[in-house]
Design a protein around this nucleic acid. Structure first.
Length: 568
RNA sequence: GCGCCCGUAGCUCAGUGGAGAGAGCGACAGUUUGCGGAACUGUAGGUCGCAGGUUCAAAUCCUGCCGGGCGUACCA
């Protein structure tokens, strides 16, 4: 159990006991929150419980005609009722009413041994209890290569999935393929025209088609496989054929590109399939039977406003041309997620320009009888690319785009993932290519990985020297840098909990940098390896601490989908 | 116009109810015959956009305003 949870339990029990024994009046206690101390002399953790409950305490006392208490006195009362435990060495009430707790240094030192014994599991928090959650992300239109903006989606979605997997959730990663509708029809037609052009036929691509050169590459791939055998097709025959072949090419390419980013999907879900397997029909029937659909201006509308008290906006369900609207697909898709496949929770990762769409999701879920809280849409802001201090446009009017692949080839997946994760979802990112490739101190990616390489180097040297530190006397770990490192290490479960509960993966890179920093300070202050026999014991203890650090650094890097290099 | 998000150190950003607001980079001044110097130490730098309010306690919650981004389709 997380240290803070244990401390909160301890204080809760003490307060309850004080109430039972009559030291404090009886009333429902608030949830106990534990804060990390910010400065020296305030212990390691604190609780402000006494301040929070001062009013009900004194109200009750006044009713009984008793004298009122100060928050500090209440803190003292709680402190007196606290159980003795091995991990807390000091409990100090402090003005104006805090309760400061100090972690026992001996217990702290012993955790280095626990970590080496248990491994990365030591840092895992059981939050999911086996809950099945789907993370749907990227889901870019399958009409061309992934542009670099999609890389942020990939980094966020995949890291959320990793966080959840390591916190007791059963996770599925899904890519939703928008393989039907006008967009892909035009894509198919463009491809067909490009194919014809390759064979010397004079024809233009559609006006609102896809002008990018990559379309010619796809046409070449088809040409390579089928030669000119498809030229005889009529337009009516060709467009769907080319649409299908193009989609297959693009999805294979998407999977390949995402693999470069170390992102792998468990499932690629076809939008079209919702219309082939009857889901759409079924959902339509449900809504129709509930009276949620109505006809207006030759289109069928879904009465979304019925389910959202603050909104008077309805959504087109079937357009006047007879084609289902995008929202209709979304209803069917989420019916499939929650009802057909029965996920307990679904996370959709969308760019912020889909904010309105996100706001409309609760209405459909309510109409389907699904608790809207089971779906969380994670919105993230856009990415701009910078090179030489200047912004590089991700997509140009010519149809050319800066692809995720070309950026990855330049900066590598580690730097890309770290930098794309390092800002909160709502913040816009300026991705500086020059910084991403810089092998210098200004690049945090290298600082973190370098710490791991350095740790590995020490352990490698120890192994070469045949040092066996398995039964080290960890009580020797007493200097400030050693204890600071241990404190920092034990913070990870809090960070992970925060990241999972708020679906905010940006806490990871910040923590990783912090951890690397704290280790490097220890490294600088405390010599680990020594040939002097007098240093034998302390060397063994410190090697245990270094090994524990290695386990944790590797784990944090893995949560971010990054490599933990032993040599750089 | 309306809706959502953002506004914190020179720059890039953490911090969403707890004590005196943090980190990285940059600037300045130092450190080093050892485990990887891609290092370490120190200094300077802030009306937390502005104004009210709630609270024992506000960068954090509420209201209004200012500035910026995004959105406001029978597109996905």
């Amino acid at each position: 159990m997380m240290l803070q949870t244990q401390l909160a339990d301890l204080i809760h029990k003490a307060a309850r006991k004080a109430q039972k024994k009559g030291d404090l009046p009886k009333f429902e206690l608030p949830e106990i929150t534990i804060n990390r101390a910010k400065r020296e002399g305030q212990g390691d953790f604190s609780s402000a419980l006494a301040l929070q409950i001062i009013r009900p305490v004194n109200n009750a006392r006044k009713e009984k005609g008793e004298r009122t208490l100060s928050p500090l006195q209440v803190a003292e009362i709680i402190a007196r009722r606290m159980d003795q435990v091995d991990f807390v060495s000091k409990v100090e009430p402090a003005k104006p009413g805090f309760l400061n707790l100090t972690i026992d240094p001996g217990w702290l030192a012993a955790q280095a041994g626990e970590i080496t014994r248990v491994g990365a599991e030591y840092f895992q928090v059981e939050l999911g209890k086996g809950e099945r959650v789907q993370v749907e992300f990227v889901s870019a239109n399958p009409t061309g290569p992934l542009h670099f903006g999609g890389a942020r989606n990939a980094a966020i979605g995949d890291t959320l999935a990793r966080l959840l997997e390591n916190s007791g959730y059963e996770v599925q990663r899904e890519y939703y393929i928008n393989d039907r509708g006008a967009q892909v029809d035009i894509f198919g037609e463009t491809l067909w025209r490009r194919y014809q052009q390759l064979h010397g036929i004079e024809t233009d691509i559609p006006e609102d088609g896809y002008p990018g050169a990559y379309m010619i590459d796809y046409a070449r791939a088809i040409q390579a496989e089928r030669g000119d055998s498809l030229l005889a097709l009529s337009d009516e025959e060709a467009v769907p054929r080319f649409r299908g072949m193009g989609l297959a090419l693009v999805t294979a390419e998407l999977a390949d590109d995402l693999g470069m980013m170390r992102v792998f999907f468990d499932n690629w879900f076809s939008e079209q399939s919702l219309y082939e397997d009857g889901t759409f029909e079924h959902v339509s029937a449900i809504l129709r039977d509930q009276g949620d659909l109505y006809l207006k201006d030759d289109a069928v509308w879904f009465a979304a406003s019925k389910y959202l008290p603050k909104s008077d906006r309805d959504e087109v369900f079937i357009r006047s041309n007879g084609e289902p609207g995008y929202y209709a697909s979304d209803i069917a898709y989420h019916y499939n997620k929650f009802i057909t496949r029965g996920f307990d929770r679904v996370i959709d990762v969308w760019a912020v320009d889909h904010q309105n769409q996100a706001a409309r999701m609760p209405a459909m879920l309510k109409a389907l009888g699904i608790d809207p809280d089971r779906l969380i849409v994670v919105l993230y802001d856009l990415v701009t690319l910078k090179r030489g201090g200047k912004e590089v446009k991700l997509s140009k009017r010519s149809g050319e785009i800066v692809t995720m692949r070309e950026v990855l080839e330049e900066v590598g997946p580690d730097a890309a993932r770290y930098l794309l994760l390092s800002r909160s979802n709502e913040a816009r990112i300026d991705f500086d290519i020059d910084l991403a490739v810089a092998e210098s101190s200004e690049n945090p990616v290298y600082y973190v990985q370098y710490a791991h390489a350095r740790v590995s180097s020490i352990l490698r040297k120890a192994e070469e020297a045949g040092v066996d530190y398995t039964n080290a006397d960890l009580s020797l770990l007493t200097c400030p840098e050693e204890l600071a490192l241990l404190q920092k290490m034990l913070q990870l479960p809090e960070i992970v909990t925060e990241a999972v509960q708020r679906l905010a993966p940006h806490h990871l890179p910040h923590y990783a940098l912090d951890l690397a920093k704290t280790f490097t300070k220890f490294y600088d202050a405390c010599r680990v390896l020594s040939a002097d026999p007098a240093d034998r014991e302390i060397t063994h203890a410190r090697l245990t601490l270094v090994r524990a650090t290695q386990i944790e650094l590797a784990y944090v890097l893995d949560l971010m989908g990054m490599n933990a290099p032993e040599v750089m």
